[in-house]
Design a protein around this nucleic acid. Structure first.
Length: 357
DNA sequence: AACCCGGGGGT
DNA sequence: ACCCCAGGGTT
């Protein structure tokens, strides 16, 4: 079912986009690798936050071959601070798959792209359209917002059926001629014009917008509320001896999987932490309290933490936990850490000097 | 279908 | 304090 003429909605967006498009680096290329990399970075991430990481990563790994050959520890270190660290792991998986199984060439269709680890409906549509000109509509937070307002769609955008409904509508709207431009335009429009608190007075779609006409701009899109945050308490022990520090890489299905940290006990207070790990008891004679980070806030958790610096004499003997290892203090900088620990280090000069010389 | 996964910025 | 951000994976 080819569209001969475009929907007026699409025409207006494309016209608006000609005058308002930002000059973003991933819009200057057709390289599917660079587009893919940018899209993974931008998942649930604002452009301003992702941009420095885009420059760093494209410089460190200019091609998919470079990324596939990368050491995962190095990749995690580059991803440090960006959040949602499973993206980094899936990035590496997909790069290796593309190099090893696909001769370094990315799949060129939505239905093939979506099979890649870390590539879901949005990202597959984005790559298929931007790199290969396929008319698959992107449906991201911007698109939900614009379509819900303009067409008066009441479906809860967190409901399972929402994606299907909004995608079907977007599929009707996307032109067969330069679908990539439409996808860029609708997201840019959502970001700059039809934002969560929009400036309807300057909107080119004001005369035909359902939400504006019905005075329901601030009620659309409908989105159910997030559940309250879980409160957690972490006790950190920076155990240092003979120029080395005790660390481990978080592995459990939990926050910060793949990142590195100091000896950590999840407990509301020091005494309970010691009771849980009796080897700590004789160490505490060498411990000094560090300035604790403030409450560290994640999307669904609040982490309240405390930390002790434990500098042990060389002849001090104790049995370290089996899942922890010693590394040179100076090498800690090279590992990917949670921002909570970056803040802890920044706020404590003594710690900073141990770890950064 | 429900739940989990970061960090930062706007209001 | 709450919302949102160029979402995706697991169970």
């Amino acid at each position: 079912m080819k569209k001969v003429t475009n929907h007026p909605f699409a025409e207006t967006l494309i016209t608006w986009y000609k005058d308002h498009a930002r000059d973003l680096p991933w819009r200057r290329t057709n390289d599917p690798y660079v587009i893919w990399l940018s899209e993974i970075i931008l998942q649930q991430t604002r452009i301003a936050q992702g941009l420095p990481y885009f420059y760093t990563l494209t410089e460190a790994f200019p091609t998919v071959y470079d990324l596939a050959a990368a050491d995962e520890t190095t990749l995690f270190r580059h991803w440090q601070g960006l959040g949602y660290y499973s993206r980094a792991r899936n990035l590496h998986k997909t790069a290796k798959h593309v190099v090893d199984m696909l001769d370094g060439k990315f799949p060129e269709t939505y239905s093939e792209l979506i099979k890649l680890p870390g590539v879901g409906p949005y990202t597959a549509a984005a790559i298929a359209s931007f790199a290969f000109g396929e008319a698959s509509p992107v449906v991201d937070g911007n698109v939900y917002r614009i379509l819900a307002r303009y067409f008066g769609i009441e479906t809860d955008i967190l409901h399972a059926s929402a994606r299907k409904e909004f995608t079907a509508l977007a599929q009707e709207l996307i032109p067969n001629s330069d679908p990539a431009r439409f996808n860029q335009a609708i997201m840019e429009f959502g970001s700059l014009q039809c934002s969560p608190s929009p400036d309807c007075g300057s909107c080119p779609l004001i005369s035909s917008c359902f939400a504006y006409r019905e005075e329901r701009v601030n009620q659309l899109p409908v989105k159910s509320k997030a559940k309250p945050q879980r409160i957690r308490h972490f006790q950190y022990f920076i155990i240092e001896q003979a120029g080395k520090v005790l660390v481990h890489q978080r592995q459990a299905k939990d926050i910060w999987q793949g990142l590195w940290e100091f000896f950590c006990v999840e407990s509301p207070d020091l005494q309970e932490a010691i009771n849980l790990h009796p080897f700590l008891s004789p160490l505490m004679g060498h411990a000094v309290a560090l300035q604790a980070p403030g409450v560290h806030v994640l999307s669904h958790q609040k982490i309240i933490s405390a930390a002790w610096l434990v500098q042990l004499p060389s002849n001090f003997k104790f049995e370290k936990p089996s899942d922890y290892q010693w590394i040179l203090s100076s090498e800690f900088e090279q590992l990917g850490k949670p921002v909570l620990l970056l803040n802890l280090i920044t706020d404590n000069i003594a710690l900073k000097e141990i770890l950064e010389g």
